[in-house]
Write a protein that binds this DNA or RNA. Structure first.
Length: 256
DNA sequence: AACATAAGCAACCGCCGCCTA
DNA sequence: CTAGGCGGCGGTTGCTTATGT
């Protein structure tokens, strides 16, 4: 799944995230939290808009993200919740730990919707049949179910196809996401190759100092364990701001 | 083998509601 | 009360890969 990297008029990058950008964002958010998404890319050395960073973190980089095939139970939950909540994907995602609203939305549109509609159609046809039959027998009152049954056939997950996420990336035991399909290669033995416009544009303050992973050992994959980083002090020694991060939630990876 | 079409999914866009000054 | 900033959300797009002809 590779999008051609591009940038908009303001010089902000768009499109697929590179491993380098992932590392920068992961390192920054795990260390300092998401105190302000709009400002964050500037401090993290990313030429991305805040929304893009937020989306990337929430959907792919944050810890405890569950990738890969959906279990039958998960699919049943999605269908059941969608019936009661509609397209409120965030509310549905809240009931499925590790799954993101975007992923659930995609899964619904590509897999579950069709099955659900088929079932609904079959159900409606069955009702029509029943209706016809009853009408033929001159019955006046017809009991029409308002919604199709939510029982999923066992065949739905009988031969699950690996998702592209499965095929293209793996998460190791230490929460390391390894992508084999990234369009941008990064030479970790030569960090100079990855000089970054947004980063270079700033000078004379914190962000024209060599970015912190230049001097720390980060392996070639995106590591999500904050403990594996050696990060610098908070970039701005403003007590007002840094006091917000005096506690760290290891589950969410945020400082509060 | 070459082309066309469908499927899958990461990422963007724009709207909305909340919060604060 | 109001306007602006921000985050969150859902719809949509566009690119790659898989499958069919």
């Amino acid at each position: 799944m590779v999008r051609t990297p591009c940038s908009d008029k303001s010089g902000l990058r768009k499109g697929t995230w590179t491993p380098e950008e992932d590392r920068k964002l992961t390192a920054y958010v795990t260390r300092y939290g998401c105190w302000n998404w709009r400002q964050l890319p500037k401090y993290a050395g990313l030429a991305r808009c805040g929304k893009s960073c937020r989306l990337r973190w929430l959907n792919y980089l944050r810890p405890n993200i569950k990738r890969g095939n959906y279990s039958k139970e998960e699919e049943e939950t999605i269908v059941r919740l969608h019936e009661s909540l509609g397209n409120r994907w965030s509310a549905i995602a809240a009931q499925l730990p590790g799954r993101t609203d975007n992923e659930i939305k995609n899964h619904w549109h590509t897999h579950l919707k069709k099955r659900f509609m088929d079932k609904q159609n079959n159900s409606e046809k069955a009702v029509e049949k029943k209706e016809k039959k009853l009408n033929n027998h001159h019955h006046l009152v017809i009991d029409v179910p308002t919604s199709p049954p939510l029982i999923l056939e066992s065949s739905l997950s009988a031969s699950p196809q690996p998702t592209s996420s499965d095929q293209n990336s793996t998460i190791t035991k230490d929460n390391t996401v390894i992508s084999s399909k990234d369009s941008v290669t990064y030479d970790h033995n030569n960090n100079n190759k990855t000089s970054f416009d947004g980063y270079e544009a700033n000078s004379g303050n914190f962000w024209n100092e060599p970015f912190f992973w230049d001097s720390c050992n980060i392996n070639t994959s995106v590591t999500l364990d904050p403990a594996s980083y050696e990060l610098p002090d908070f970039p701005f020694l403003d007590e007002e701001i840094s006091c917000h991060f005096d506690s760290y939630d290891p589950l969410d990876g945020f400082y509060f």
